[in-house]
Design a protein around this nucleic acid. Structure first.
Length: 447
RNA sequence: GUGGGUGUAGCUCAGUCGGUUAGAGCGCCUGUCUGUGGCACAGGAGGUCGCGGGUUCGAUUCCCGUCACUCACCCCA
């Protein structure tokens, strides 16, 4: 029998950690719904051709296979989804006649990637996605709604601050074409690495790997270094002296988005012209969010506009824009280091003690009464010394212990385990302070 | 997929220059403090030293392989 060990890249949590994750997921869902996004859940698997088309080719996909399949038998042709956007595109196509447009949906599910795990990189993790799709054309105002909702959601979470960088593919593509670059994609990839490898390396690689002239490389580098928290990036790009139709279009779009977000708290969004987002299906606005205090985590949220992901055949055209929150990436390192934990390992707020078997009836009545008032309550399972029952509550962090009377004449009492204070209480009316009703999230240590 | 590091108790780690019953701290369980927890003290459970093979009288220790974990590259939430 093999030893029981954790599986790398498949994080699991103790209850006091899972409680934090659940709270975060609840908060995200509430924010998504406050903007009117409708809930959707898709199946965990998609046909492999669905997963491998759409330009997302180099994702490591887990393939489904029956254990009793024969040696030469093919697999089932299904794979676990590696994101929520591709399944969503399939979902929209499948139900396109039944949905109301623009269709706004949110989807919070696990996804799987068969990559080598590392810090902040997992093989099974949770994403929280919002997307909007519309028929034929999609209003640019949704490009601005995404980072707004994202910023609001992240600000409400018990996590370090997150900055969302915004760019527009058309700006870079137009700019590159405007200076005579034919092969845009490899230039995008290298420019995207600016933050990681630095300006000198970007300049060198643009020359070595893309064959750019010194002036071309300098222009690309200068563009990638443009950042602004308002619309002033437009002037900075214009100053490069490049003109191209696509560039103008991209600048207009990005300026609109940044203008729409001008009221957000300072530092929550920034126009960052180095962001390219790999070579996926994005066609316009792109987003990439990072935690400045945890740069090693990399991108914690990402997304963008895709005009051709949904549809692509016939006359059906469903452009979309969306963003994905990397819940596991943001949370897992913090949970693992116990920098955030729940104040108790169980939801229980009150433990009703059981002094003797004859008291079961009374204990049950007290428990029921508390539960009816919304207080998570459990009864100790067997008559035992109070010391043992108190310890049961203590170890789980349950804040209150209820003592049923040992003789009919005596009053009920409730004890606050933290202060040690014990008071006479009426089971029909006593309630804990609101703050103690549910486990709270506690920060500890540095970070 | 490529390269480096590491595998001893639930956790963090000692240790064995190859030699009888493999250790510590924390955690866990029990008891004592006349049915009210935390503290203290006393006791206890828990390990085929990752797995397979080789060398040897003898391997947890040395060698090879393998798997797992981990770090970096690639790529990404």
């Amino acid at each position: 029998m093999a030893k029981i060990r954790p599986l790398s890249g498949f994080p699991e949590w103790l209850p006091e950690q899972r409680l934090v994750e659940q709270r975060v997921l609840d908060e995200i869902r509430a924010r998504f719904e406050s903007y009117g996004f409708a809930p959707v859940e898709t199946r965990s698997v998609e046909p492999l051709e669905q997963l491998t088309s759409k330009g997302a080719t180099d994702k490591e996909i887990y393939v489904l296979r029956r254990i009793h399949a024969g040696e030469g038998d093919p697999d089932t042709g299904f794979g676990l989804h590696f994101d929520l956007t591709v399944p969503f595109a399939r979902y929209v196509m499948q139900h396109r006649g039944e949905l109301a447009y623009p269709f706004k949906r949110y989807q919070i599910q696990r996804v799987w990637r068969g990559e080598r795990p590392q810090v902040g990189r997992y093989r099974e993790f949770t994403q929280a996605d919002i997307d909007v799709v519309d028929l034929d054309s999609l209003s640019l105002s949704f490009d601005a709604e995404m980072p707004r909702l994202l910023a609001e959601t992240l600000a409400a979470l018990p996590l370090p601050p997150v900055v969302t960088g915004i760019n527009n593919r058309k700006v870079l593509e137009g700019l590159y074409r405007g200076i005579g670059i034919e092969e845009v994609t490899p230039v995008l990839r290298i420019a995207d690495k600016l933050a990681k490898i630095g300006a000198d390396n970007v300049r060198r690689l643009l020359g070595e790997e893309c064959g750019l002239s010194v002036t071309q490389a300098d222009t690309c580098l200068a563009a990638a270094q443009i950042r602004s928290t308002d619309t002033s990036f437009v002037a900075a790009v214009r100053a490069l002296g490049v003109t191209h139709e696509l560039l103008d279009e991209g600048l207009d779009e990005l300026a609109f988005v940044m203008g729409e977000l001008a009221d957000l708290p300072a530092g929550s969004v920034v126009a960052d012209l180095s962001i390219a987002r790999g070579l996926d299906y994005y066609t316009g606005t792109v987003y990439e969010a990072v935690m400045p205090s945890r740069p090693e985590l990399g991108t914690v949220c990402a997304g963008g506009r895709y005009d051709n992901l949904v549809g692509g055949s016939g006359n059906v055209r469903l452009p979309g824009v969306g963003i994905s929150i990397g819940v596991t990436r943001m949370l897992a390192p913090i949970l693992a280091k116990k920098q955030l934990a729940a104040s108790r390992s169980v939801p229980t707020c009150v433990l009703v003690t059981l002094p003797a078997d004859e008291a079961r009836g009374v204990a049950r009545d007290v428990t029921r009464s508390l539960r009816a008032r919304g207080v998570p309550t459990e009864t100790y399972h067997a008559p035992a010394k109070f010391g043992k029952q108190l310890k049961y509550a203590q170890k789980r962090g349950i804040p209150f212990v209820w003592f049923v009377p040992t003789d009919a004449a005596a009053p009920h009492e409730v004890k606050d385990l933290r202060s040690g204070e014990q008071i006479v209480a009426d089971p029909a009316v006593w309630s804990p302070p609101d703050a103690d009703l549910r486990p709270s999230i506690v920060r500890s240590g540095a970070g």
